[in-house]
Amino acid sequence: MADKRTMTLNLTDQEMRLLEDLSARKDVSKTALLRQALRLYQMVEARLSRGEKLFFEDEEKKKAELMVV
């Protein structure tokens, strides 16, 4: 297991509620959820920087491009 460093995170009430809801739904700790979010962000960024696009596809196979800033 890699060494870990600690940081303090300031969130608004809304952001904290979202974090709590998502971590409950995913059945992981808030820390684990934030680490997942960071990794996902890195993965998306890496692919977008290679010129790829990010799409969501619905059940009828309709694609919607997701704009990431």
């Binding site: 739904r25 995913k26 059945d27 990794r39 996902l40």
Partner: peptide
């Protein structure tokens, strides 16, 4: 993979968990 489209449970008893 620890995140991505396939990192969601599909078994009904643990659906959508990581």
């Amino acid at each position: 993979e620890t995140v991505g489209e396939f990192c969601r449970c599909r078994l009904p008893e643990q659906a959508d968990r990581s």
